[in-house]
Nucleic acid binder design. Structure first.
Lengths: 223, 223
DNA sequence: GATTGCAAGAATGTCAGACAATCCGCTTGA
DNA sequence: TCAAGCGGATTGTCTGACATTCTTGCAATC
C-alpha cells in the first residue's frame, strides 16, 4: 500500500500546495530514480483529481524534476554523471559569483542569519541525519544567494540545486564529508564576514569542487 | 548498448505543439505585457479543451513566460528593469563562459554553421525586419551554446533569453543597433574561429554589455 | 526451450460538462 | 461623493467518459 501523502484534511486543497507536496516527496528521495509515477495512484495519495494532478506534473516537468514521455507518463529521471557534472559546473559559475557579490553587499543582520544557519549545519553535521544536513546546508546557500543582489541568480541556482538534491543526501553520508563540508563553509562565511570578495569566490569555488568530487564518489559507489 | 531504433514519427501528439504555439505567440509579442489571458478564449483559439490548456499554461508558468495568480488566472508578466538587468547579468555569466569554452572545442563543421548563421544575421541586419534579426541572432547564440560542452548551460541560457525576448525586437530596432551588433558578433566569431578562448570571452562580454545598454535605452524610450 | 504473436488489462491523452469560489465593474442607496 | 452590494465573468476543481497507446502474461510455434 502506497503511503498517504495527503497530510492535510483541510477543506480546500490549493493546487500550489500539491506541487509543493510532490516536490518535497521527490526531494526526500521517496521515489527511486527511473521509477514511474502512476497518475491514478498519486491522485488517491494526494486526494486530488487527475486534471489537477496533471497540472502539477506539468510544473514539475518544466522544472526538470520529473520526465514525462508521451504515452508513458511521468517518471523520476535518473541523472547521468554527465548531466550531474554539467549541473555542478553551472552551479559553480553561479554560486561563486553570488558569494563574491554577497561579500561586498550583505547587511550585518543578514550576516547574523548566515552565521546562525552555519551553526545549524554544524549541529546537523555532528549528527547522522543526512537529511538535516542537506536541509541546513541548503539554508546556508540560499541566504548567500538571497543576498547577492540578483534575484535571477538565486532563482536559477535554486532550480539547479533541486535537480541534484537526490545525490546530496548520499554524498553527505560519505565518511567525513559533512565535517569537511563544514570547514569549507566556515571559510566561505569568514570571507563574506570579512567583506573579502576575492576570498569568498575562492572559498566558494573550493567548496563546490569538493562537493562535486564527493558527489562523484558517492555515485560511483552506488553502482 | 544497441542504438535506439525507435524511429517512429509521432502520429499525433498535439499537446506538445500547443505549448509551442503559445510560446511562439508570446515570443512574437502577440500579447502585451500585463495583459490577461482568458482560458476560454485560448481554448477556442487553439482548439483544445480547458484541462489541456491549463496543463500547457502550467508549463509556461514554470518557465516564467506567464504568471498565474490565484483566482485571477494567467497573464503576461511585465518585466521591470531590475529583473531585466538581473537576467542580463546572469546571461552574461553564462554566455561568456560558453563562448570561452566554445572557442577551444568547437568542431570545424559546427564552426561553418556558426559562420552561416552570422551571414544570415548580416543579411537580416541590413533589412528592417527586426523579428528576423532577433531570430537569426538567436541562432548564432544557440550554436555557441550548443557547442560549449555543457547542456545545462545551454538549457538555462535558453530559458533566460526567452524571458527577455520581448525587448529584443525593440532594442534591435534602435538606430544602428543591428549594425553594431553585427560588428560585435563578428568579433566573437573571429575569436572562436581562432580558438582564442580569452578573446572570445572578452568579445562576448563586450557584446552583452552593449546589448544590455541598448535594451535599457529602448526600455526608457518606451515609457 | 526460446522466441514470437496476440489479447487482455492498465495507463495515458483528451474531452465535455458541471458547479462553487472568487473577482471585477456597475448600479444603487445613503 | 462615496460606499455597499449585486450580477456577470472567470477561475479552480471535480466527475466521468472514451480512444489510444503501452505492458504483460499466455499460448502457439519453431
Amino acid at each position: 500500500m502506497p503511503p498517504d501523502l495527503n497530510l492535510r484534511i483541510s477543506p480546500r486543497t490549493v493546487q500550489r500546495e500539491t506541487v509543493d507536496k510532490l516536490r518535497l516527496a521527490i526531494f526526500s528521495g521517496l521515489f527511486q530514480p527511473g521509477s514511474r509515477l502512476i497518475e491514478s495512484q498519486l491522485c488517491t495519495q494526494l486526494g486530488i483529481s487527475r486534471p489537477s494532478l496533471r497540472e502539477a506534473l506539468r510544473s514539475l516537468e518544466a522544472e526538470r524534476l520529473i520526465e514525462i514521455v508521451p504515452n508513458r507518463g511521468p517518471s523520476i529521471p535518473s541523472l547521468s554523471w554527465e548531466v550531474a557534472t554539467a549541473i555542478y559546473e553551472v552551479r559553480e559559475l553561479l554560486e561563486v559569483e553570488a558569494a563574491g557579490r554577497c561579500a561586498s553587499r550583505i547587511s550585518p543582520e543578514q550576516l547574523r542569519e548566515l552565521e546562525k544557519s552555519l551553526s545549524a549545519f554544524e549541529e546537523a553535521a555532528s549528527s547522522n541525519d543526512s537529511l538535516a544536513q542537506v536541509m541546513t546546508a541548503a539554508d546556508f546557500y540560499s541566504i548567500i544567494l538571497a543576498n547577492c543582489g540578483n534575484p535571477i541568480l538565486e532563482e536559477v541556482h535554486r532550480g539547479l540545486v533541486a535537480r541534484i538534491s537526490f545525490f546530496r543526501g548520499r554524498s553527505m553520508s560519505l565518511e567525513g564529508r559533512a565535517q569537511s563540508s563544514l570547514a569549507e563553509m566556515k571559510e566561505i562565511f569568514e570571507s563574506i564576514a570579512a567583506g573579502d570578495e576575492k576570498a569568498a569566490r575562492k572559498a566558494s569555488k573550493n567548496h563546490l569542487l569538493k562537493a562535486k568530487a564527493a558527489a562523484k564518489m558517492s555515485m560511483d559507489s552506488a553502482i
